[in-house]
Simulated scan of single mutants.
Amino acid sequence: MRLEKRNSSSALALLLAPIGAAVFTLLVCALLVLWAGAPVGQTYALLFKGGFGSVFALSETLTRAIPLILTGLSATVAFKARLFNIGAEGQLYAGALAAVLVGGLHGGTGLEWSPWVLFPLMLLAAALAGALLLLGPTLMKTRLGVDEVVTTLLFNFIMLLGVSLVLDGPMKDPGAMGWPQSVGLQEGLELSKLIAQTRVHSGLLIAMGLALAVWCIFKYSVLGFNIRAVGANARAAAFAGVRVTRTMVWVALLSGALAGLAGAIEVAGRTGYVTLDMSPGYGYTGIVIAMLAGLHPIGVLAASVFVAGVLVGADSMSRAINVPTYIADVIVAASLLSVLVASMLTQYRVRWK
């Protein structure tokens, strides 16, 4: 068996590829549902109902999707230039801490800050914190040839240990009865609700706007062209006059800033303060979302809602039927593998000998 490059991919093949991937995923996961001793049809119905079957379910899905959109965009920007940023989780926490540092720890200075001034400063600090956390590994890659997968991954653990340190130290909330959490944001810095009596907030609009902005950067800007060129072939791009190191620095700043904003928006829109369990792996899930979206910023929106719906629906499903919530992780992972294989088959054909 060998793979042969197709001269072109038909529109029908491009349309059927994701459909086939979805069907294959459902069939594979159906075997696991049967193994758990549950009816397949009822399990999938409860999964869909729990994620999208009511206004409350949809609002919970959209709330979960907001940080996923931003971490998905972070991975999309980095991976487009072949900068394999595995550190969005740490960058998210860096942004969350910076947001609380600006929006919660300034009260003892004696200065009265208007929320209209403090809120953009809070977002700017979060974006800067995430960007700087990725800038170091990027410079080590471009200057010293150090593998960014290792450095960004290790920075996640360093950042989480740092969060644990400050939550039990200078940023600990004295009114939390010993619970390790930071002080809260001041009043007026919380994001408004989009739907009354739900948790979905206006951070969804910010995330959608950033997805559109990243798409415009990729499609219409010189930086976007340079990112695509470096991602396709860095040596050829340098030969053509693209400044590879400068481009990679911009990629690091943009990717890290998006992950840092995810932390700030999660604090301002949902939690109000920082805890160690604030993120159930949003940074890592963002990598899956970027790949599901084919590194397309608009596709990240759809992929984030899909993954969030599966995760939220699995929680509801497990309470109604004897199927563990881990089936959601299997569905997301199987979806990723199926999409990657389907995408490969649209570009290559299998030849048997």
Rank of each mutant, 00 (worst) to 15 (best):
S114F: 00
G53M: 02
P120T: 11
G90P: 07
A75F: 03
G53N: 02
S59W: 00
G95A: 06
G103E: 00
V102P: 12
H106W: 10
V102D: 03
L128A: 15
L97W: 03
P115N: 09
V117Q: 05
E89V: 13
R64I: 01
G72N: 13
T63W: 00
L62N: 06
A75I: 08
A75W: 01
A81M: 00
V55I: 10
L97E: 02
A65Q: 06
P115I: 09
G87T: 13
G53S: 05
W113L: 15
V117H: 06
L118F: 10
L128T: 15
A131P: 03
T71I: 11
R64K: 15
N85F: 06
E60I: 13
I86D: 00
A57P: 00
L97G: 10
I66P: 02
Y93C: 07
E89Y: 08
T109G: 14
A65D: 01
A94Q: 09
P120M: 04
S59T: 14
P115F: 08
G107N: 08
P115H: 12
S59F: 04
V102S: 07
L83D: 03
L124T: 14
L58I: 15
L70H: 06
L128P: 01
A125K: 07
F56E: 11
T63C: 03
L101Y: 10
F52D: 01
G108W: 00
L132H: 03
F79E: 02
G110M: 11
G110W: 05
R82W: 02
L118S: 07
P67I: 12
V100T: 07
A129C: 12
G104F: 10
P120R: 08
L73V: 10
A126M: 08
S74D: 01
A88G: 15
V77C: 03
V55E: 01
A88R: 08
A127H: 02
L70E: 07
L123T: 13
A65R: 11
G87I: 08
H106T: 15
L68N: 09
T109K: 09
I66V: 15
L62E: 02
G107H: 11
T76W: 01
G104P: 14
F52C: 09
A127S: 08
I86K: 05
F84V: 14
